[in-house]
């Protein structure tokens, strides 16, 4: 057999072997089981700005110390919340220029209006020229996350605690949620 024939066979075998005996080393494909997306999403929730007029009955004009409003948060019912939400950190901020304190109550209700979670705190009195900020952070951890998964409504209730000062000013509300997921 000529040198070239030997060479041909050797090289062909070599190429076939490289292609066929190719291998995958040093990896662990079982790790695919552990792959998870873990986004932390900052979402603005509710915002409002109330003044003295909002505490008067629209028809009678009589002072009403408690006002409330309900907002449905339909996204809480979506599958990505129900299946993959791990924790939520709510942040609430009031900026008060009323010279009066307020009592705040934020409730999370289920579809049939059963209270799932309540956040209550007092809002410090402020001044027209130097509004006072009251911050509140509410962390709902994984062990307790069902209270959010079962909720669909957020009710904000503000109770004015009047004193001798004139009931004039502005109360600004900001809220957000830091939703942490594991998909």
């Amino acid at each position: 057999m000529s040198f070239n024939k030997h060479l041909k066979i050797v090289v062909l075998l070599l190429l076939f072997s490289v292609v066929i005996v190719s291998c995958v080393k040093g990896i662990d494909l079982d790790q695919t089981e552990e792959i998870a997306l873990t986004p932390d999403l900052q979402v603005s929730l509710l915002t409002f700005d109330v003044t003295g007029i909002d505490f008067k009955d629209e028809d009678s004009g009589i002072f009403t110390p408690i006002i409330r409003d309900t907002v449905r948060l339909e996204f809480l019912d979506d599958s990505y919340i129900q299946d993959d939400l791990v924790t939520v950190e709510f942040s609430f901020k009031y900026t008060n220029s009323f010279p009066h304190p307020f009592r705040n109550k934020i409730s999370f209700l289920s579809e049939n209006d059963r209270t799932q979670h309540v956040v209550s705190f007092d809002i410090a009195p402020g001044d027209k020229n130097s509004p006072v900020v009251t911050d509140w952070v509410e962390l709902i951890e994984n062990a307790n996350i069902d209270v959010i998964k079962k909720s669909i409504k957020m009710v904000v209730e503000i109770e004015a605690l009047p004193n001798q000062s004139p009931f004039e000013g502005e109360l600004k509300f900001e809220s957000k949620g830091l939703f942490s997921f594991e998909f």
């Binding site: 979402v43 509710l46 449905r72």
Partner: peptide
Amino acid sequence: ETDGIEPLFPDVAPSDNTIPYWDLFE
């Protein structure tokens, strides 16, 4: 662009129906 939902207080419209903030937002 959005800052979130803005409730109006009180929680009922003049027709005595709850204001569907979420539907309006969507």
